[in-house]
Design a binder for these strands. Structure first.
Lengths: 186, 186
DNA sequence: GGAATGAGTGAGTGTACAGTCACTCACATG
DNA sequence: CATGTGAGTGACTGTACACTCACTCATTCC
């Protein structure tokens, strides 16, 4: 009978689901702080099968990080497309807004922070550089902004990471207000 | 007279030495990635005694982080004092230079990155906020710069962290040059 | 029906590590 | 010399966790 033309591998589907879970759970507790078993539980799968789908924990983290940058790039791209103001600064601004929307749940952002902390593991450092490269080049080419403006865009993105990791939003003090002023973030 | 071969030191002196070691070793391998035994070895002391000097690993990390912000604050303060240009921007600039000198060895900087990754542990998050508060308020009061300029100062400091953790200096590519351009760092 | 393939797991194994505890030894004081 | 105090440690305990392996079960194909 007209069975599916291509035999779909359920393992591939599982891999995607596990990566989704990995992004969420790694983001919460970090690379070393997250047992594979917690990711397995979140994906409603046995720990043994996670270990069968990925050669080791490091590879799973890298896969999650890659996917994270994939999504961030897509969001920035969408932001650039839908910007009403077509000037370089206008497009940069729209991209910033799209990024802020994307990280309304903090998983993508937190995963980057954890990756920075684990960047001495060669594969993780390499994945991080790949991701930053893809973001940087895309921001530059899609906005047409100057090098200085792109650098500033990234710098304020990093400030945003600091604000979120330390929960500065909820600190009712002058110095905290100073740091968070005008920064779009969750 | 001739000093005895083996000299017992006071617990207070030991604590300082252990904190020095902790800054260096934690900076290299992170909070969860660093066994207490490695810090003990670096301090030429038994692991058991480290556990006697600090109630637990978390407290040791917090002590190291506090000391790290202490040193950073002192460096910024020195930078502000010795600035030839007494305008707010000139002082900010001098502080940036002093900070860049301080983190020539990357320990202080890396420790902050690891602290961000471990900030969900309440005591570590609190220590991080304390440190950032002290830096921010001191930069503001010593430089007399506007809120916006202080915010920018911190944002580019965070960019500097990104550059160091990912080793962007050693990446010979256009996008990497764009991000590192004009940033003073080790 | 029955063989082959591949999804998925339970029950381990080995190891690393935080924290403890009973102890030894250095030194100051009377 | 005797004794008290505090520096410093070796040996241990309990636990958590990455990864393995022999296995079961469902589906597909002949």
């Amino acid at each position: 009978m007209p069975a599916p033309a291509v035999r779909l591998s359920t393992a591939e589907a599982r891999r995607s689901l596990v990566i989704d879970s990995a992004i969420e759970v790694f983001a919460r507790t970090g690379y070393l702080g997250t047992p594979i078993a917690n990711i397995a539980e979140h994906a409603r799968i046995s720990p043994a099968y996670v270990s069968k789908l990925f050669p080791n924990k490091e590879a799973l983290f890298v896969a999650a990080l890659d996917e994270c940058f994939e999504r961030a790039g897509a969001a920035l791209s969408r932001g650039a497309e839908t910007s009403a103001d077509r000037s370089p600064d206008g497009i940069l601004n729209a991209m910033g807004g799209a990024y802020a929307d994307l990280i309304a749940d903090r998983s993508l952002l937190m995963l980057q922070v954890h990756a920075q902390s684990a960047a001495t593991i060669p594969e993780i450092g390499a994945a991080l550089r790949r991701g930053i490269e893809s973001i940087t080049t895309m921001v530059r080419s899609r906005s047409g902004a100057t090098d200085e403006a792109v650098q500033r865009f990234v710098a304020y993105g990093q400030l945003c990471h600091l604000i979120v990791t330390t929960g500065l939003d909820d600190v009712p003090a002058e110095w905290a207000r100073l740091l968070t002023a005008g920064i779009r973030h969750p």
